[in-house]
Simulated scan of single mutants.
Amino acid sequence: MDTYASDLADLVEALDLTDLAVIGHSTGGGEVVRYAAQHGVGRVTKVITAGAVPPVMIKSDSNPDGSPIEVFDGIREGVLKDRSQFYQDLSVPFYGFNRDGAKVSQGLKDDFWRQGMLAGLTAAYDCVKAFSETDFTEDLKSLDVPIFIAQGDDDQIVPIHDAALKTIELVKHGTLKVYPGAPHGIAGDYQAELDADILAFLGS
């Protein structure tokens, strides 16, 4: 995660961007939180996360209600054993297509698979440790800019009780928006509502 944030810092500095709003989904939410806290002072004015992994996902003595290591070992096993099938299978809970009444989009499933297969095997494998074990607690506490924290309450990938509901308790200037029935993947009505809320937050 430090590498992700450092790479973003290098890009922002090369382009000399200021008055910057950073937006991240899932693992990317962790990246923008760490970037804003550790590199973005004086450049970042707002942070937006959606279904983001902070503060920390993995179960431990200090995070007893987190997800057990076996969950993430299963992801690693899937990536190594047959990542093509793994990404096809993962697309179903990712977009909530396993819920009653869900409108399944084969196009979304195909695009999720396509994006997964574009990632290098080592990067995909190592990313699991980065998103699950990195503790963003101090990053969240140190943020001194407004942060909009968005998450669906039917997120099967990043449990909301481990993520947004804890994050809002740690930040100084946070706004929490919970989307009833929304999954981890951003699409359809959830996407339209989230996009409108992001634009409103940026304009506030």
Rank of each mutant, 00 (worst) to 15 (best):
residue 39 H to S: 06
residue 112 F to W: 01
residue 40 G to C: 08
residue 81 K to V: 11
residue 94 F to N: 00
residue 1 M to E: 13
residue 107 G to R: 10
residue 103 K to Y: 01
residue 22 V to L: 12
residue 107 G to H: 09
residue 151 Q to T: 10
residue 74 G to S: 14
residue 152 G to Q: 08
residue 145 V to F: 04
residue 114 R to C: 02
residue 151 Q to G: 08
residue 35 Y to I: 11
residue 149 I to T: 03
residue 89 D to L: 02
residue 193 E to D: 14
residue 180 P to D: 15
residue 23 I to E: 08
residue 176 L to Q: 11
residue 47 V to R: 02
residue 146 P to R: 07
residue 16 D to T: 12
residue 194 L to S: 14
residue 146 P to H: 06
residue 176 L to P: 08
residue 193 E to L: 15
residue 45 T to A: 13
residue 17 L to Q: 15
residue 11 L to E: 15
residue 49 T to Y: 11
residue 10 D to P: 05
residue 132 S to K: 04
residue 146 P to G: 07
residue 23 I to R: 05
residue 63 N to F: 02
residue 64 P to V: 04
residue 177 K to V: 10
residue 21 A to Q: 04
residue 103 K to W: 00
residue 96 G to S: 02
residue 175 T to A: 06
residue 163 A to K: 04
residue 28 G to A: 07
residue 138 E to K: 15
residue 118 L to G: 01
residue 62 S to C: 00
residue 40 G to V: 07
residue 182 A to T: 06
residue 29 G to V: 12
residue 87 Y to L: 03
residue 96 G to N: 01
residue 120 G to I: 12
residue 153 D to A: 05
residue 28 G to Q: 09
residue 37 A to Q: 01
residue 165 L to F: 13
residue 36 A to W: 03
residue 9 A to R: 08
residue 142 S to W: 04
residue 3 T to M: 10
residue 128 V to G: 07
residue 6 S to W: 08
residue 112 F to N: 00
residue 155 D to P: 13
residue 33 V to W: 06
residue 148 F to M: 08
residue 49 T to K: 13
residue 11 L to Q: 12
residue 69 I to D: 14
residue 141 K to L: 06
residue 191 Q to A: 14
residue 112 F to V: 00
residue 110 D to I: 01
residue 130 A to S: 15
residue 91 S to C: 03
residue 152 G to T: 11
residue 200 A to M: 02
residue 147 I to N: 02
residue 202 L to Y: 07
residue 124 A to Y: 04
residue 157 I to M: 12
residue 66 G to Q: 05
residue 128 V to P: 08
residue 55 P to V: 01
residue 110 D to Q: 10
residue 188 G to I: 02
residue 96 G to C: 01
residue 56 V to T: 09
residue 149 I to V: 12
residue 80 L to M: 09
residue 79 V to M: 00
residue 94 F to L: 00
residue 139 D to I: 07
residue 72 F to V: 13
residue 183 P to T: 06
residue 143 L to F: 01
residue 109 K to C: 09
residue 189 D to G: 09
residue 82 D to K: 08
residue 172 K to Q: 13
residue 118 L to P: 00
residue 61 D to K: 01
residue 152 G to D: 07
residue 78 G to R: 00
residue 146 P to M: 05
residue 197 D to G: 04
residue 56 V to E: 02
residue 5 A to L: 04
residue 43 R to F: 06
residue 51 G to D: 13
residue 78 G to K: 00
residue 113 W to Y: 08
residue 141 K to E: 07
residue 200 A to G: 03
residue 42 G to C: 05
residue 175 T to K: 13
residue 12 V to F: 11
residue 83 R to S: 03
residue 15 L to W: 15
residue 101 G to W: 05
residue 144 D to Y: 03
residue 202 L to G: 07
residue 63 N to P: 00
residue 131 F to C: 07
residue 94 F to A: 00
residue 12 V to E: 11
residue 81 K to R: 14
residue 190 Y to V: 04
residue 6 S to D: 10
residue 130 A to V: 14
residue 111 D to G: 00
residue 23 I to F: 14
residue 79 V to E: 00
residue 17 L to V: 14
residue 175 T to V: 12
residue 175 T to R: 12
residue 68 P to C: 14
residue 109 K to I: 09
residue 143 L to M: 02
residue 180 P to L: 02
residue 87 Y to A: 04
residue 159 P to G: 10
residue 169 E to P: 09
residue 169 E to R: 15
residue 186 I to S: 08
